[in-house]
Amino acid sequence: MLVLPLVALVVRAPWSELGSVVAQASVVQALGLSLTTAAASTVISLLLGVPLALALGRTRKWPSIPRRLLRALVTVPLVLPPVVGGVALLLLLGRRGVLGSLLDSWFGITIPFTTAAAVIAQVFVSMPFLVLAVEGALGASDRRFEVAAATLGASRWTILRRVTLPLIWPGLSAGALLCFTRALGEFGATVTFAGSFPGITQTLPLATYLQLQTDPDAAIALALVLMAVSLVVLVSLRDRWIPGLAS
């Protein structure tokens, strides 16, 4: 169930046309946009997700019910259909949305159907992977090192930078990697909230879907390219970022 679909994709790929399909300007543009938006969404997820994971994993003064509620809210995008997430983003940040109407009337800022909208959609669906991975790493780490650093007079920032982050680095790296690959393959929330405009919001998954309606062989070739990019990212960074999985 996991391997055979990928094998079928490789077997049915139009290898004779693969070079010409990949060399098309629209494909190169879509691939570049996918890599750029996925990288941007990963950076944003790190900036927002790591403090959130630290709050969930290290703040013991919170009552259990608010912590559980916050954790449940973080995991909702994992089980929510991506199209529903796109609709929710549209209702929040659209021109008539809860916040989007204020941004439009006060500052003249329109977010939907822009590259920023594609990044926001990717952050929405991919950041939970990072938060859960970092929180899990925090739960598995030995807090005695942090306590020892505190007794030696280290500040909270020093403990975070010199002790906590190095301890959870494998989990943090794994979460960032999962976040990037999930953002790279995002489709539903992106097409709903950002649309599919070449050079602006049409990432490689969207281009693959559009090609499937008109040229199935080209769609298979694009799907193969997207799978190859994901595999290259996973294989090239696996030993460096997730040494525990190398054995």
Results as ranks from 00 to 15, higher is better:
A194Q: 01
T190F: 07
T158Y: 15
G188F: 01
G188E: 02
T115Q: 15
F113V: 05
A183E: 07
F187I: 00
E186R: 12
G175V: 09
G153I: 00
F145I: 07
T114A: 02
P170H: 03
F197C: 03
I120R: 08
R144T: 15
A148P: 11
T151S: 12
V119A: 06
S141I: 07
A176R: 06
I168V: 15
P198E: 13
R143W: 15
G188S: 01
T203V: 14
F129W: 12
S196W: 02
A121G: 12
C179D: 04
L160T: 09
L167R: 12
A117V: 01
R161M: 01
L177E: 05
V119E: 14
I120P: 07
D142G: 08
G185R: 01
S196G: 13
L130D: 10
G175R: 04
C179R: 05
T201Q: 09
I159Q: 04
L172C: 11
Q202S: 03
A174S: 03
F187A: 03
G188C: 04
F193G: 09
V147N: 09
Q202I: 04
L130A: 13
R161N: 04
L178N: 06
L184A: 02
V125W: 15
L160R: 08
A121R: 06
S196A: 13
L178I: 07
V147K: 06
V134T: 05
A121E: 10
F197H: 09
A148F: 08
E135Y: 14
A150K: 14
W157A: 13
R162A: 10
F187G: 09
Q122F: 08
A121F: 03
V131T: 14
F129T: 00
A149M: 06
F193S: 02
L167D: 12
L130W: 12
V123L: 07
L160I: 02
Q122L: 01
I111D: 04
T201I: 10
Q202P: 11
W157C: 01
F145E: 11
F180R: 10
A149I: 02
E135V: 01
T158M: 08
F145W: 14
L132Q: 15
G195K: 03
L132I: 15
L160H: 03
G199Q: 12
G136T: 12
D142N: 10
T151Y: 09
F113G: 00
